[in-house]
Write a protein that binds this DNA or RNA. Structure first.
Lengths: 199, 199
DNA sequence: CGGTTTTTTGTGCAGGCGGTCAAAAAGTCC
DNA sequence: GGACTTTTTGACCGCCTGCACAAAAAACCG
């Protein structure tokens, strides 16, 4: 119960959100502590005091990213037919680049970026990423199982295999979209997959 | 034709190959010039003299990576039925991690790693990556077009859309495999996709 | 052999990096 | 009001980075 002492002058959650955007768009290595200090408009010491070192700060941002994403995923899949919802899940990153430049939303999936940059050398990052993958496939497989029972989705493959395939696709799509993407072509590919899942 | 002067004491191609392995496993930022000097067993000056700066060196390695991959891809698809070949193309990265630790072969796809780490800030890297994507889809789409004509592959979607979907899948699979992968589950997902493409 | 060209070798360097720290400031508690 | 606790502030540090350079060495040419 240490609620004494000088109160923090900035909103910690809001700072984490802004750091998330910066890390998301530039990646871990290319984002310097100085960039964070400039963007968040707080001093170095405050940053280290509140979040620990740069690595912890980044991992906290990744966790926030996933928590947000998971919430949206669950919401999208919990009601109504599954295939249209899954199509949206896949189409979102395909369309994201159109807004990317104007709005502050960066490209690609932060889990995927972390996988490429940090996972080979950082066990904690690997855990976060692996857990995110597992939750994605579990949530999607559950939805697909229901949809198979309802006759909406083909039973040609197990829901787990279909969910794994969707994980690969969404990760690949998000990644490829960073290099620039023909939106129409990407959506055609998404449609091809969704159609293939139809019963 | 300057074939005079002191001859180079090391094999440039071999040095590039070794650098490729290092860059592949660690990424661009996490590989220091000192690492390269140590691993390649040549002095700083020689390295800069032969390859320019670190960035050019990396981009040359990426280009070599893609050239090698493209050659294998073309070979795999030019003869025989297309779907088994495509299954192999997808299954390879899924199985790669089994060998990864013992052999010197790193995880993931170097094009994908470059996409995540360099593309947002490096126009030249973006070009290399985008060109690789385009060639992949073109090569695969050509093969699928033949296979559709032969009645091997479903005509439910255009070959271009199918090829784009395969690009997403192979990129996603390679990426996800870096975080550790249940090989059996990954192969089941690959099978589900290949089956869905069957006529 | 002398001249030319190119690579090798190893040192040196400025800058930016992540991270630390001590003093000042701003609160709460008694 | 004075003690205590925590945050803020901004200077500071050592390290490592990518890179430049000059002298030596090793080839070819005439």
């Amino acid at each position: 119960m240490a609620r004494t002492g000088r109160p923090r002058a900035f909103d910690k959650d809001q700072a984490l959100e802004r750091a998330l955007l910066l890390f998301w768009s530039r990646g871990y290595g290319a984002t310097s502590v100085q960039d964070l200090v400039d963007t968040l408009a707080l001093e170095r010491g405050s940053l280290y005091g509140a979040f620990g070192d740069k690595r912890q700060f980044y991992l906290a941002a990744v966790q926030l990213y996933w928590d947000t994403y998971e919430r949206q995923l669950v919401t999208a899949l919990e009601a109504g037919p599954v295939l249209p919802a899954l199509r949206e899940v896949l189409a979102n990153p395909a369309r994201a680049q159109e807004y990317a430049s104007e709005a502050g939303v960066p490209q690609g999936c932060m889990i995927g970026n972390t996988t490429a940059e940090l996972v080979p050398q950082d066990a904690e990052a690997r855990e976060i990423v692996a857990r995110s993958h597992a939750r994605f496939t579990q949530i999607v497989a559950d939805a697909l199982r229901r949809a198979q029972a309802d006759g909406e989705v083909t039973q040609a493959a197990a829901p787990e295999a279909q969910a794994q395939l969707l994980l690969f696709t969404v990760q690949g799509l998000s990644l490829v979209s960073r290099a620039g993407l023909d939106t129409a072509a990407a959506l055609a590919a998404v449609d091809a997959l969704i159609d293939a899942l139809r019963a």
